[in-house]
Design a protein around this nucleic acid. Structure first.
Length: 207
DNA sequence: TGCCAGGCCCTCTTTAGGGCCTT
């Protein structure tokens, strides 16, 4: 894959919607370059409010752990530096991009990075999978995992391995010599029924 | 007071509804 450095990102949060006042409590991110994970970033962050029992048991992150964690603003500043101007990837990117943008706006920063979504790609590429949860896809494709789920860095790493497989499978299934982030992103936004014709058109334009 | 995510995607669709995915 050309221009292939991407940052895969995953948030743990107090809930589902930043519009309802939910906050980030942990972020994990990995940098992929040349089909390898070459850097990792992980921060817990204090959201300034108690998290629910559901979130404590879902993530394994406790109120005690967060009480001594740095502020969200501090962690997001470091995340901004880690992300740089890389393209971004997340599993259900609409979720992570909402929290990223909401927390960035609190530190007066605006994201310019493009997002690609491994969920949208998986639904197009693996319609036969039992479902398209991250955990299921990792098992379905026999991807590398340390068995930890719902922690930010572990989920970001699993998403990274899924991303690398997705890129490889698009490349092989549609007979590309090489493939770019833009092509994968286009794939993720193309209606299923139009994928063959759109991919053919992209290939024709490359020659 | 009472409400409360949001985007994608399929279908018994488009004057809509409901399941999937993320925490």
């Amino acid at each position: 894959m050309k221009n292939n450095s991407v940052v895969v990102i995953d948030f743990e949060t107090t809930g589902l919607s930043p519009n309802l006042g939910e906050r980030a409590i942990e972020v994990g991110a990995v940098l992929i370059n040349n089909n390898q994970i070459v850097d990792r970033f992980q921060r817990l962050m204090n959201p300034g409010k108690k998290i629910s029992g559901f979130i404590e048991s879902y993530t394994g992150i406790s109120n005690k752990m967060l009480s001594t964690a740095p502020s969200v603003a501090e962690a997001m500043g470091e995340l901004k530096d880690f992300i740089g101007d890389h393209h971004l990837v997340a599993h259900n990117a609409s979720f992570d991009s909402r929290f990223l943008d909401a927390e960035f706006s609190r530190i007066k920063h605006k994201r310019v990075n493009e997002f690609a979504c491994s969920l949208l790609i998986s639904r197009r590429l693996y319609p036969e999978a039992p479902n398209h949860k991250l955990e299921t896809l990792v098992r379905y494709k026999n991807l590398k995992t340390d068995g930890v789920h719902h922690r930010a860095l572990a989920d970001a790493e699993m998403t990274a391995h899924l991303w690398m497989r997705l890129v490889e499978d698009i490349k092989n299934n549609f007979h590309f010599d090489d493939i770019t982030f833009d092509i994968v992103q286009k794939f993720s936004k193309t209606p299923k029924s139009k994928i063959p014709e759109v991919m053919k058109k992209i290939k024709d334009q490359l020659h």
